[in-house]
Protein backbone atom coordinates (compact mmCIF):
# COMPACT_ATOMS: atom_id res chain seq x y z
CA UNK A 1 0.00 0.00 0.00
CA UNK A 2 1.24 3.46 -0.84
CA UNK A 3 2.34 5.65 2.00
CA UNK A 4 0.13 8.69 2.53
CA UNK A 5 2.11 11.77 1.62
CA UNK A 6 1.93 14.39 4.39
CA UNK A 7 2.84 17.96 3.49
CA UNK A 8 6.15 19.16 4.85
CA UNK A 9 5.93 21.58 7.79
CA UNK A 10 6.79 25.13 6.78
CA UNK A 11 10.42 25.91 7.47
CA UNK A 12 11.82 29.17 8.69
CA UNK A 13 13.50 31.22 5.99
CA UNK A 14 12.02 29.19 3.15
CA UNK A 15 10.34 31.38 0.62
CA UNK A 16 6.83 30.29 -0.29
CA UNK A 17 3.88 32.10 -1.77
CA UNK A 18 2.67 32.92 1.75
CA UNK A 19 3.98 36.29 3.00
CA UNK A 20 6.39 36.21 5.95
CA UNK A 21 4.15 37.56 8.76
CA UNK A 22 1.49 34.96 8.00
CA UNK A 23 4.12 32.25 7.70
CA UNK A 24 5.26 32.99 11.26
CA UNK A 25 1.67 32.51 12.37
CA UNK A 26 1.36 29.24 10.46
CA UNK A 27 4.38 27.94 12.33
CA UNK A 28 2.77 28.75 15.65
CA UNK A 29 -0.38 26.76 14.91
CA UNK A 30 1.11 24.02 12.76
CA UNK A 31 0.34 21.40 15.42
CA UNK A 32 -3.41 22.17 15.26
CA UNK A 33 -5.40 18.92 14.97
CA UNK A 34 -8.70 20.65 14.05
CA UNK A 35 -10.46 19.21 17.09
CA UNK A 36 -12.70 22.27 17.53
CA UNK A 37 -12.11 22.74 21.27
CA UNK A 38 -11.37 26.41 20.52
CA UNK A 39 -14.73 26.85 18.79
CA UNK A 40 -16.58 25.10 21.61
CA UNK A 41 -14.88 27.38 24.15
CA UNK A 42 -15.27 30.69 22.31
CA UNK A 43 -17.91 33.07 23.73
CA UNK A 44 -18.03 34.99 20.42
CA UNK A 45 -18.16 32.04 18.00
CA UNK A 46 -21.91 32.63 17.49
CA UNK A 47 -21.17 35.92 15.72
CA UNK A 48 -18.20 34.80 13.61
CA UNK A 49 -18.38 34.06 9.89
CA UNK A 50 -15.70 31.36 10.29
CA UNK A 51 -15.51 29.49 13.61
CA UNK A 52 -12.09 29.66 15.30
CA UNK A 53 -11.36 26.06 14.21
CA UNK A 54 -12.16 26.88 10.58
CA UNK A 55 -10.13 30.08 10.81
CA UNK A 56 -7.00 28.21 11.99
CA UNK A 57 -7.47 25.96 8.97
CA UNK A 58 -7.55 29.05 6.71
CA UNK A 59 -4.29 30.14 8.32
CA UNK A 60 -2.67 26.77 7.67
CA UNK A 61 -3.88 26.77 4.08
CA UNK A 62 -2.45 30.28 3.58
CA UNK A 63 -5.87 31.60 2.51
CA UNK A 64 -4.84 35.17 3.19
CA UNK A 65 -7.65 36.98 1.44
CA UNK A 66 -10.46 34.97 3.01
CA UNK A 67 -8.73 35.24 6.38
CA UNK A 68 -8.45 39.03 6.39
CA UNK A 69 -11.94 39.51 4.99
CA UNK A 70 -13.33 37.46 7.87
CA UNK A 71 -14.48 38.99 11.17
CA UNK A 72 -13.28 36.04 13.23
CA UNK A 73 -10.07 37.29 14.88
CA UNK A 74 -11.52 40.77 15.15
CA UNK A 75 -14.21 39.26 17.40
CA UNK A 76 -11.68 37.65 19.75
CA UNK A 77 -12.19 39.34 23.14
CA UNK A 78 -9.07 37.73 24.67
CA UNK A 79 -10.86 35.59 27.27
CA UNK A 80 -8.11 32.95 26.93
CA UNK A 81 -10.51 30.00 27.15
CA UNK A 82 -9.20 28.46 23.90
CA UNK A 83 -5.60 28.91 25.03
CA UNK A 84 -6.42 27.26 28.35
CA UNK A 85 -8.19 24.28 26.79
CA UNK A 86 -6.28 23.65 23.53
CA UNK A 87 -5.12 20.02 23.79
CA UNK A 88 -2.05 20.89 21.71
CA UNK A 89 -1.12 23.73 24.07
CA UNK A 90 -1.08 26.31 21.28
CA UNK A 91 -0.96 30.05 22.16
CA UNK A 92 -4.20 30.74 20.30
CA UNK A 93 -5.24 34.02 21.94
CA UNK A 94 -1.79 35.51 21.40
CA UNK A 95 -1.86 34.39 17.79
CA UNK A 96 -5.25 36.09 17.37
CA UNK A 97 -3.53 39.28 18.61
CA UNK A 98 -0.81 38.82 16.01
CA UNK A 99 -3.43 38.55 13.28
CA UNK A 100 -4.89 41.83 14.57
CA UNK A 101 -1.41 43.36 14.34
CA UNK A 102 -1.10 42.36 10.66
CA UNK A 103 -4.59 43.71 9.93
CA UNK A 104 -3.66 47.01 11.61
CA UNK A 105 -0.42 47.34 9.62
CA UNK A 106 -2.07 46.50 6.32
CA UNK A 107 -5.23 48.59 6.85
CA UNK A 108 -7.72 45.88 5.92
CA UNK A 109 -11.14 47.57 5.51
CA UNK A 110 -13.10 44.97 7.53
CA UNK A 111 -10.99 45.87 10.58
CA UNK A 112 -11.10 49.64 10.14
CA UNK A 113 -13.32 50.40 13.15
CA UNK A 114 -11.31 48.31 15.62
CA UNK A 115 -8.01 49.55 14.24
CA UNK A 116 -9.13 53.19 14.64
CA UNK A 117 -10.34 52.43 18.17
CA UNK A 118 -6.96 51.02 19.19
CA UNK A 119 -4.97 53.63 17.28
CA UNK A 120 -6.76 56.57 18.91
CA UNK A 121 -6.45 54.94 22.35
CA UNK A 122 -2.68 54.69 21.87
CA UNK A 123 -2.51 58.24 20.48
CA UNK A 124 -3.91 59.52 23.78
CA UNK A 125 -1.34 57.42 25.69
CA UNK A 126 1.47 58.65 23.47
CA UNK A 127 0.49 62.26 24.18
CA UNK A 128 -0.17 62.09 27.90
CA UNK A 129 1.31 58.85 29.25
CA UNK A 130 -2.09 57.82 30.55
CA UNK A 131 -5.21 57.42 28.48
CA UNK A 132 -7.71 60.24 28.79
CA UNK A 133 -10.94 58.35 28.25
CA UNK A 134 -13.01 61.26 26.91
CA UNK A 135 -10.24 62.59 24.66
CA UNK A 136 -9.73 59.13 23.25
CA UNK A 137 -13.44 58.60 22.56
CA UNK A 138 -13.61 62.05 20.91
CA UNK A 139 -10.64 61.22 18.68
CA UNK A 140 -12.22 57.86 17.87
CA UNK A 141 -15.57 59.38 16.89
CA UNK A 142 -13.87 62.04 14.76
CA UNK A 143 -11.81 59.42 12.94
CA UNK A 144 -14.90 57.32 12.16
CA UNK A 145 -16.36 60.26 10.22
CA UNK A 146 -19.83 58.93 11.01
CA UNK A 147 -22.04 61.41 12.90
CA UNK A 148 -24.38 58.66 14.11
CA UNK A 149 -21.92 56.47 16.03
CA UNK A 150 -21.38 59.00 18.87
CA UNK A 151 -25.14 59.18 19.41
CA UNK A 152 -25.09 55.56 20.59
CA UNK A 153 -22.76 56.59 23.41
CA UNK A 154 -24.22 60.00 24.30
CA UNK A 155 -26.54 58.79 27.11
CA UNK A 156 -23.69 56.89 28.79
CA UNK A 157 -21.29 59.80 28.33
CA UNK A 158 -23.76 62.14 30.00
CA UNK A 159 -24.33 59.73 32.90
CA UNK A 160 -20.57 59.36 33.44
CA UNK A 161 -20.17 63.15 33.36
CA UNK A 162 -23.06 63.55 35.77
CA UNK A 163 -21.25 61.24 38.17
CA UNK A 164 -18.05 63.25 37.82
CA UNK A 165 -16.20 60.20 36.49
CA UNK A 166 -15.19 61.85 33.25
CA UNK A 167 -15.12 65.45 32.05
CA UNK A 168 -15.07 67.04 28.61
CA UNK A 169 -11.52 66.73 27.31
CA UNK A 170 -10.65 68.72 24.25
CA UNK A 171 -8.00 66.74 22.38
CA UNK A 172 -4.63 68.36 22.96
CA UNK A 173 -1.19 67.46 21.70
CA UNK A 174 0.14 67.42 25.26
CA UNK A 175 3.85 67.01 25.90
CA UNK A 176 4.18 63.93 23.66
CA UNK A 177 4.96 62.21 26.97
CA UNK A 178 5.84 58.77 25.58
CA UNK A 179 6.90 59.82 22.08
CA UNK A 180 10.46 58.48 22.41
CA UNK A 181 9.33 55.12 23.81
CA UNK A 182 6.74 54.67 21.07
CA UNK A 183 9.23 55.59 18.34
CA UNK A 184 11.85 53.17 19.60
CA UNK A 185 9.28 50.35 19.86
CA UNK A 186 8.11 51.05 16.31
CA UNK A 187 11.69 51.14 15.05
CA UNK A 188 12.51 47.73 16.61
CA UNK A 189 9.16 46.34 15.49
CA UNK A 190 10.05 47.15 11.86
CA UNK A 191 13.32 45.22 12.16
CA UNK A 192 11.54 42.09 13.47
Amino acid sequence: MDQIQHPEPPEKGVSTTVPAPLRAIQERVYACIQCGTCTGSCPNAFAMDYTPRAMWRLVLMGEKETLFNSRTFLLCSACYYCTLRCPRGLPLTETMEELKQIAARENHPVHKKSVLFYRNFLESVRRHGRVREMEFMTLYFLSLKNPFTPLQFTPLGLRLMGKGKVGIQVPSKGQRRLEALFRKAEELEEQE
Partner: peptide, 12 residues
Protein backbone atom coordinates in the same frame (compact mmCIF):
# COMPACT_ATOMS: atom_id res chain seq x y z
CA UNK B 1 -1.30 49.48 26.79
CA UNK B 2 -4.67 47.86 27.63
CA UNK B 3 -5.97 45.73 24.75
CA UNK B 4 -4.86 48.35 22.22
CA UNK B 5 -1.10 47.74 22.31
CA UNK B 6 -1.33 43.92 21.95
CA UNK B 7 -3.46 44.48 18.83
CA UNK B 8 -0.89 46.89 17.41
CA UNK B 9 2.63 45.70 18.15
CA UNK B 10 4.22 42.95 20.18
CA UNK B 11 7.16 44.95 21.54
CA UNK B 12 5.02 48.00 22.34
Amino acid sequence: GASAAPATGNLL
